[in-house]
């Protein structure tokens, strides 16, 4: 465990809590892509199946359970509790464009051809593209509320910090996880355009348009 990893996890947790807090306080999920949130719930579900087979540490178990709970509560808020405020007309990204290639790739390129390992690989690939429906929605409506931009910033920052963590682990432990690193780079690239807007426009206007 190094500083980059801890900061990455904190950033990830902060992003999810910011989003939940925003929905809860405003009693509205306007501007949030339900499809992206459903994909994240699927990512955590398929990745954390090792909760049942493998104990790594108390920290690991607790964080996994928190991430799973947060993502399910978010999906529940969007598709049930605050469904009336959900902007489904603008959440029109075609999920099959992500799910079909990601499923195919996880069968082709994995560490071991076993169900748990294929599902873990699927979750890593899917996470790298899961934000696309949200970014698509923002480009379609042309705006994002301030809290949504903070959410996206911390969500992007988390994987960028993981990249630093992987560089650190490579040099200190000679640890190298090719699937996670390549997907993590792809994932971070998707946020670069957003990071640029967040820093240049978001801060002074309070919103990204």
């Amino acid at each position: 465990m190094n500083l980059f990893r801890i900061l990455g996890d904190v950033s990830h947790l902060l992003a999810m809590i910011l989003l939940l807090g925003k929905i809860w306080r405003s009693k509205s999920c306007r501007g949030i892509s339900g499809k992206s949130q459903a994909l994240f719930a699927l990512v955590f579900t398929t990745r954390y199946l090792d909760l049942f087979t493998n104990f790594i540490s108390l920290y690991n178990t607790v964080m996994k359970v928190i991430f799973l709970l947060c993502s399910y509560v978010t999906v529940y808020m969007i598709y049930w509790k605050f469904w009336k405020s959900f902007d489904s007309e603008n959440d029109t990204f075609r999920l099959e464009f992500l799910l079909v290639p990601v499923t195919g790739l996880s069968f082709l390129e994995n560490y071991s051809f076993t169900p748990l390992e294929i599902l873990w690989t699927f979750s890593i690939y899917l996470e790298s593209v899961a934000i696309l429906p949200q970014l698509f929605m923002i480009s379609k409506t042309g705006e994002a509320e301030t809290i949504t931009t903070h959410y996206l910033f911390f969500l992007g920052l988390y994987r960028a910090l993981y990249l630093a963590n992987w560089i650190w682990r490579y040099h200190t432990e000679n640890f190298y996880d090719q699937i996670a690193v390549v997907s993590g780079v792809v994932q971070t690239i998707f946020y670069c355009d957003f990071f640029y807007l967040y820093v240049t426009k978001g801060r002074c206007q309070g919103r990204v348009e």
Binding site: R5, D9, H12, R47, D50, N54, I56, S57, N60, M63, K64, F67, Y111, S112, T114, E117, W120, Y162, N165, D177, A180
Partner: peptide, 10 residues
């Protein structure tokens, strides 16, 4: 080929 390792990252 089995290159799977325990996953300690989230």
């Amino acid at each position: 080929e089995d290159g799977a390792q325990p996953k300690d990252e989230l």
